[in-house]
């Protein structure tokens, strides 16, 4: 554990920023790319987690536990979001027999 705990000092913070920016962009690209509603939800999870990673990195580099507590809260929100989102998907499948996001254009009414 001693080795691990000192590893952080070898890795510059920029690396974590680049990594999470890349992950966030990939997740966003997925949201735009996919039509499958479940896949879109998964891409959203990816974006959530990139933010979590960045928060944790800042928290560790600033020696401030608040960042990690916020990650905890984000997980709570994500869990709630997934529960509601997936139930919407279930209902959608039941009503229009598809999970194609473009069939949700009834939202315009």
């Amino acid at each position: 554990m001693k080795e691990l705990s000192s590893a952080i000092q070898l890795i510059p913070l920029e690396n974590y920023i680049f990594l999470s920016v890349a992950l966030f962009s990939i997740g966003m690209m997925g949201v735009l790319f996919r039509r499958n509603t479940i896949a879109i939800l998964m891409c959203l999870e990816l974006m959530f987690n990139s933010v979590n990673l960045l928060l944790t990195a800042f928290s560790a580099y600033h020696s401030d536990p608040s960042g990690q507590v916020f990650v905890f809260f984000i997980m709570i929100v994500a869990a709630a979001e997934v529960a509601v989102g997936l139930s919407i998907v279930v209902m959608m499948k039941r009503n229009v027999d598809s999970i194609d996001i473009n069939l949700l254009n009834r939202l315009k009414w």
Binding site: M42, A57, A79
Partner: peptide
């Protein structure tokens, strides 16, 4: 790696264990 052991464990449990199973 970032010394956030608690988060690592919670992450595995919540995401991989619960959310992804839900998916």
């Amino acid at each position: 790696l970032l010394n956030a052991q608690f988060l690592a464990v919670v992450h595995i449990i919540v995401y991989t264990g619960a959310i992804m199973v839900l998916f």
